[in-house]
Amino acid sequence: MRRLVLATCAVLLAPEAAIAADPARGAEIYNSRCIACHAPDANRVGPKHRGVVGRAAGSVPGFAYSKALKGAGLTWDEATLDRWLADPEAFLPGQRMNFRVADPADRADLIAYLQTLR
């Protein structure tokens, strides 16, 4: 019984990153919340997203970035995208996106979808 309780607690307390992210759900979130400004293959109000994972921040040709992003000197990966999406201004003060994705599970799914845009 004690083992069962401990095992249950271990599952309940498992880090959220351990839950597999769902790129299909991420696509739904993208098409609902990101699509106003972004597209996979075109610069719009925001830069295009194809290839964003692994790309240097502020490096899409033809897009007018904020100074904050141009000079960020970072590469977009799971960790940096998670911090960016959680609170862009806290991560890179002076940026212009300002749209937050508050739920960690939503961010994980969204990042999983962005990883499919290769």
Binding site: N31, R33, I35, E89, N98, R100
Partner: peptide, 17 residues
């Protein structure tokens, strides 16, 4: 419709900011 829905969500999303 896609743009309008996205815009609604964008405006709602920046309200706390």
């Amino acid at each position: 419709a896609r743009l309008e829905k996205g815009a609604a969500n964008a405006y709602l999303g920046v309200i706390p900011t």
